[in-house]
């Protein structure tokens, strides 16, 4: 475990590594811009609502904010916390199981359980 092993990449591996890194970097930057953009849109929505711009009722603004929030969480998890990469199947399974429980149990409370 503790012993350090030096491993030299072949030129082909190095090429592949560089290409992959570039792709990853491009993805990260794109997603980051997208997230900034969505944040700006969200703030704009709220300001528009506060200024009383016609059409920006709270029935539009609140769902849109929730939608953007959900997308942001997804992007955060998949791009910046690497859930889209290989080897994350088990954490994903546990997270989704937790999401299912966290959704189903409160759903029971608000639908079928009287008190």
């Amino acid at each position: 475990m503790a012993e350090v092993e030096m491993y030299k990449r072949t030129p082909i591996e190095q090429d592949l590594f560089v290409r992959r890194s570039k792709e990853t970097m491009r993805g990260q930057v794109m997603m980051f811009s997208l997230m900034i953009f969505m944040t700006l849109v969200s703030f704009t929505f709220v300001v528009a609502y506060q200024q009383g711009v016609e059409g920006f009722t709270k029935y539009l603004v609140i769902p849109v904010l929730f939608l953007f929030a959900a997308v942001q969480v997804g992007l955060q998890l998949y791009y910046f916390m690497h859930m889209k990469d290989k080897g994350h199947g088990v954490p994903q399974m546990f997270m989704f199981t937790g999401v299912v429980f966290a959704f189903l149990i409160p759903l029971t409370f608000v639908t079928i359980v009287w008190w």
Binding site: T108, I112, V113
Partner: peptide, 24 residues
């Protein structure tokens, strides 16, 4: 293991959760 999380209210049938909850 999964179903174990979906049945907790059967300890509470007589609490009065209502017939729908009890049936499910």
């Amino acid at each position: 293991g999964f179903l174990g999380f979906m049945v907790w209210a059967h300890h509470m049938f007589t609490v009065g959760l209502g017939p729908t909850a009890n049936a499910i």
